[in-house]
Amino acid sequence: MAFRAFFGILGGTLPADIARAHGYEKAAAKRPEPPREQPKPETGALQLLGLMQREARLIDFFLEDISPYTDEQVGAGVRSIHAQCQEVLRKHFRLAPVIDGVEGTFVKAESAGALAREPGAIRFTGNLPAQGKPTGGVLRHRGWRADSVMLPSASPKQNLSILAPAELEVE
């Protein structure tokens, strides 16, 4: 547990309030990080993009013009991208629905637990009351929350803006 939080903090992307809501705070406090340079806000983004490219070739895929190819060709390629992206998500994030209920049924806002009062955790749509917040509604989307983020710790000298190196094969 301490370890997971350790890496979550290295990634610099675990908001303190979310950590508190899910009980990570204690573990994090147990192993204080030595003072280090504050990671720049783009660090996490570049790291994740690099990761997605390395594991699943996601940048190649998004930036490729796929219009000349048949659905079948695209479909075959997407399968491996899909599987590998999923693995990246599973490995580096702990994701859970905001409200773990059956979509299409009525749920109360309280089902979100501690997050029920969190602004932005629940979006009400449809016929909203004139005053005050609705207490529940039909669950259209369960939402997602990241319980933890575990990005690799990057060496400070690493140039993260290199998302994928150019490859030269020595023959």
Binding site: D60, E64, P68, Y69, Q73, A76, G77, R79, S80, I81
Partner: peptide
């Protein structure tokens, strides 16, 4: 089960070996 080896170059779908 389909197998697809993405192209070595940056053309992922076009260069794929299926």
């Amino acid at each position: 089960a389909p197998l697809a080896l993405p192209g070595r170059g940056s053309s992922l779908i076009g260069g794929a070996i299926r």
